[in-house]
Design a protein around this nucleic acid. Sequence first.
DNA 1: ATAAATGTTAAGAA
DNA 2: CTTCTTAACATTTA
Length: 243
Amino acid sequence: MPEGPSIVIAKEAIQVFEGKKILDASGTAKIAMGPLINKKLVAVRSWGKHLLLCLEGLTIRVHFLMFGSYMINDKKERSSHLTLDFGKGNQLNIYTSSIKLLEQPLDEIYDWSADLLSDQWDPALARKKLKKTPDVLVTDALLNQDIFAGSGNIIKNEVLHRIMVHPYSKIGDLPPRKLTELVKEVHNYSHDFLEWKKAGILKRNWLAYTKKKCSRDGSVIKKEYLGEGKRRTFYCEGCQVLY
DNA sequence: ATAAATGTTAAGAA
DNA sequence: CTTCTTAACATTTA
C-alpha cells in the first residue's frame, strides 16, 4: 500500500467526501476525537507518503506505514484506527496507520516541491540537496523523504535498474549526467507507478524488484540487504555500474 | 505455515 | 546531552 503513488490513489478516492461534515469520529488511534466532530472535510491532499485530511482549522495526518489500509463506505471485521462518519452511509475507515493531528498551516510543515507526485515538484532543488551529501549511498538517497517525498523501496530498486546504477554507488561518485538522470527517473517512475497501479499492472512491469533475472542482459539479479535501513535491494550484476 | 514485506518513530543504550 | 541502535507497530502474502 504505502509508496507515494498509492497514497495519491487513496487521496483521489477519499476526495468523494470533500465538503461533507464529520458527524462522528471513532477508533483506536491515540488522538482526541472531539475536535473532529462537526468539522467539514475541506480538502484531501497528500505529501509523499502522508495522506492529509484537511478540516476547518486542523489536519488529520495519516501514514499507512507498512500495513495500513482504508475502506470507503465499507469496513473490515477488525476494529478501525479511525472511522469518520459523514452520515447516510458515507464512511471512511482507516486501519493500522500512524495518525496525528496537525494544528499548523500545512505550508509551514510541508515543502510541496519535494513531493514527487506534486505538480510543484522541483528537480533542480532535489539535485541541489543531493550535492550536499556526496558520501550517501544512492540506495539510501532514493529513500530520503526530505529529497524524494513519496519514493519507497520499489521505486528505489526500479529507478536504479532503469538508470543502470549499482545501489552501492555514492552520490558524489556519480557523473553529473547520471545524477540528473537519477532525479529525472525517480520522477518518471513515480508517475509510471501511479498509472500502472491504477491499471492493476504494476507488478507485471517490475524489472528488478523481486526479479531473478535481468530482462536487459539476462544476468542474475542479486538480492542484498543494503543501506542504513538494510532494505531489500535487487540489482543486476551485469548492467548496473558501480561508480 | 512460518517468515518476510511497499515504513517510521520512540524508547533505550552507549 | 547527544547520537546510535533496537524494537515496536500489526497484516497480508508467498
